[in-house]
Design a protein around this nucleic acid. Structure first.
Length: 376
RNA sequence: GGAGAGGUUCCCGAGCGGCCAAAGGGAACAGACUGUAAAUCUGUCGUCGAAGACUUCGGAGGUUCGAAUCCUCCCCUCUCCA
């Protein structure tokens, strides 16, 4: 039964790039997909209505942060994350594995789990795999992530190997603890740093456990990009074709294109939202630091060819002014634009795959997309 | 008219004989952000330059080895009293 609920249909492959559909209890997701990050129960600066307009199909939430505030019991009583934040399309919750890295100064890892010291009030909280799943079950996201350690870069191979072993053990425990398999798909997370043998070991062990989807973690943590690309390319033939692959935390528009080319289906990243709030946006012609003084009297939209609300209605000069004044509307407009672009990027890529012209699409857009936009 | 306070680098504002091209804010400018401790953080911010040199602290003189800091005069603000 559960296979049906989270069925993944691989519709088409163009080279190694894949186009598919992932079914979830809150609707289908067309892959490749980008998932806006909504750590604290909101994609910062966006209303659910705006997210829908932009074309968002699934958003993230974060177990660690939502457990601390407002608390998963409250969210459960509100009807889960969907009810609480009034977003009735799919949601994915990250497990807190990333916080094991980002809050490294405030936690201690043991075989049992991770003891975090709250970054808010200093109180101690033990995150075991079982506890994390219990919280994720309460939050009720359609896709939930196993609890892992996202190891930093650089790290010794020895450290990565040990961490990986622990993460595999945790994956097993997560799977055992996960009771709500009818409504929530638990994804395993491949670790192994930049080492192919460890990645292979990790992927195969997880595949033995048989998860409905596999993610690739521990990348884009500071390693040279070539390593990241190498690993996804390496894992492509290893991971099962009939399950979705999710590359966690990636990335720039260019990273996304390369990794789609390496067979990845799902992405998330704070970059479009975080950078937008700080006055830097992404377009098909590269990134634009719209808060820069050179746009002071530029009355064109961010991207003349963009169909988003921001580009249809407002100028670079106005947006620069709003960002510069720290006006809330500025952050909202830039976020709308950048998320729209990211979603447009994967949508157009998907179309190219379905029409079996991915490679030429890639060569047309990849060179432009990560550069600083022509300043004219 | 009398009494007092003060004029510092774009702005506010410290400094009150050497360690001062001058603290600290702000503004401005440039940039970084990859499973969000992020409306955050970093850098630049007198001129030319690698070091170093040169011109600055209302103006003009002076004291001193040495002055934004002390003295004299002048200009200008502000507060209170008449």
């Amino acid at each position: 039964m559960e296979e049906n609920i989270f069925k993944f249909d691989l519709l088409k492959q163009s080279g190694n790039a894949r186009a598919g559909i992932l079914e979830t209890p809150h609707g289908n997701i067309e892959t490749p997909i980008f998932m806006p990050v909504g750590t604290l129960g909101t994609v910062k600066a966006m209303s659910p209505h705006e997210l829908s307009d932009i074309g968002a199909q699934i958003i993230l939430g974060n177990t660690y942060h939502l457990y601390l505030r407002p608390g998963h019991e409250i969210i459960a009583r509100a009807g889960g994350l969907h009810g609480f934040e009034n977003w009735h399309k799919p949601i994915l919750t990250d497990s807190g594995g990333f916080q094991v890295m980002s809050l490294a100064g405030l936690r201690k890892i043991t075989k049992e789990g991770v003891r975090f010291q709250s970054h808010i009030d200093g109180s101690y909280h033990l995150f075991t795999p079982e506890r994390v799943i219990e919280i994720e079950n309460a939050l009720g996201a359609d896709i939930i992530m196993a609890f892992d350690e996202c190891p930093p870069y650089p790290a010794t191979k020895d450290y990565i190997a040990k961490s990986l072993k622990m993460t595999l053990d945790w994956a097993n425990r997560c799977k055992d603890a996960h009771k709500n398999t009818e409504k929530q798909a638990l994804f395993g997370i491949v670790q192994g740093g930049i080492y192919q043998d460890l990645r292979k070991q990790s992927a195969e062990a997880l595949m033995d456990m048989d998860f409905p989807g596999y993610s690739i973690g521990g990348l884009a943590v500071g390693e040279p990009k070539e390593h990241m690309f190498e690993i996804t390319e390496f894992l492509n033939p290893i991971l099962p074709k009939n399950k979705p692959r999710y590359l966690m935390g990636v990335g720039t528009p260019g990273d996304i294109l390369v990794n789609i080319r390496n067979g990845v289906d799902m992405f998330d990243c704070v970059m479009p939202t975080r950078n937008a709030r700080k006055g830097s946006v992404f377009t098909w012609n590269g990134k634009m630091i719209v808060k820069a003084s050179r746009y002071k009297e530029d009355f064109r939209p961010i991207d003349e060819n963009c169909s988003c609300y921001t580009c249809k209605n407002f100028s670079r000069a106005y947006i620069r002014h709003l960002i510069s004044m720290k006006e809330i509307l500025g952050m909202r407009l830039t976020t709308i634009h950048s998320l729209h672009f990211y979603l447009d990027l994967v949508k157009e890529t998907r179309k190219a795959i379905l029409e079996d012209r991915f490679e030429s699409f890639f060569h047309t857009h990849y060179p432009k997309v990560d550069l600083l936009m022509d300043q004219e």
